[in-house]
């Protein structure tokens, strides 16, 4: 990052607006942004150390909520959510890495690449509930899949575990978080200089060795990024378990939501703090893996290409 910054502050660039105006604006923005992003996250974490008495928050630090989580067995929900998040994230990365590698290095047609990136971008802008609710008519006992299976005589009676089950929830999650797994990996892979890959094969490296010793280490920040963008939102997934779990699959997101609607702020806060903790931990890993690898400008050059 240092070189890029040195460039922009070199004396040749004397064109900046009255430096103070830019500075002022950035300052005000940061203040407001901290107010609506960082402060709420800190406050909700702090709330997990308060207690409720007669629907009033008692601002008196206590560990009651956390002890209560352990005693009432809510920690099982945390474990179950982690299980879901880990397995779905693992599958996502497993499918996303080869696909991203092909997209960044294997795909020779710019039009095909642009088309696939378009397809990966669009889901960010689609209403989630209508997208997920359709799965009911696909996976349900009289849904498409069961109709096909029964109709073809493969099974006698409809499979009931297709919908309102762990399977259905994982299935819905996989589709929802595939693009977020592909994008960071794709970005770092397309940053890798083709000459490096060519040099590796010129020096006699097999494709497997090139993958193992050249591509994989350079793509690590992207893989960690993909994990962050998949694992963290999965920890707080709510739409998929709610619509496809049918009350059978209780995850962290629903617990937070129901605790909040019961005005049980400390429990909702403690469960949210678990998610925030995971987020901070993974972000730290990401920052360490990014350190000194990429500058802001090189990242955007790759977007530019």
């Amino acid at each position: 990052m240092a070189t890029a910054l040195a460039l922009s502050s070199s004396p040749r660039h004397r064109w900046r607006l009255p430096g103070t105006a830019t500075g002022w604006f950035t300052g005000w923005f940061l203040l407001a942004w901290i107010g609506v992003v960082v402060l709420p996250l800190l406050i909700i974490s702090a709330f997990s150390f308060f207690s409720m008495r007669q629907y009033q928050i008692v601002y008196d630090p206590t560990l009651d909520t956390w002890i209560g989580l352990a005693e009432t067995g809510r920690w099982v929900v945390v474990l179950r959510t982690i299980r879901f998040a880990v397995s779905v994230t693992f599958l996502e990365i497993l499918v996303a890495f080869p696909f991203a590698l092909w997209l960044a290095k294997g795909c020779r047609s710019n039009a095909v690449r642009a088309g696939i990136i378009t397809l990966l971008t669009i889901p960010f802008f689609i209403d989630a509930s209508s997208r997920i609710i359709v799965w009911r008519s696909i996976l349900g006992t009289n849904g498409v899949i069961n109709n096909l299976l029964v109709g073809s005589g493969l099974i006698d009676k409809p499979l009931t575990w297709l919908l309102y089950s762990d399977f259905a929830v994982s299935f819905g999650m996989f589709g929802s978080y595939f693009p977020t797994a592909v994008f960071p990996i794709f970005l770092t892979l397309s940053l890798i200089d083709d000459d490096l890959i060519k040099a590796s094969s010129d020096l006699g490296g097999s494709r497997l060795q090139t993958l193992r010793f050249v591509i994989l280490p350079l793509a690590m920040p992207g893989i960690v990024g993909g994990i962050v963008f998949t694992f963290v939102p999965l920890m707080a997934a709510w739409i998929e378990p709610q619509l496809l779990g049918g009350g059978q699959v209780n995850l962290l997101g629903q617990s937070i939501q129901s605790a909040l609607s019961n005005l049980n702020y400390p429990v909702a806060a403690a469960l949210s703090t678990v998610v925030i903790g995971v987020l901070v931990l993974l972000l730290a890993v990401l920052i360490v893996s990014l350190r000194g690898r990429f500058s802001m400008s090189s990242l955007f050059q790759s977007l530019d290409r």
């Binding site: 709420p40 406050i43 937070i256």
Partner: peptide
């Protein structure tokens, strides 16, 4: 990086 549910709950509490 922050899940929608988490930031929503945090802003609500705040």
């Amino acid at each position: 990086f922050v899940p929608g549910l988490t930031i929503g709950a945090a802003l609500f509490v705040f």
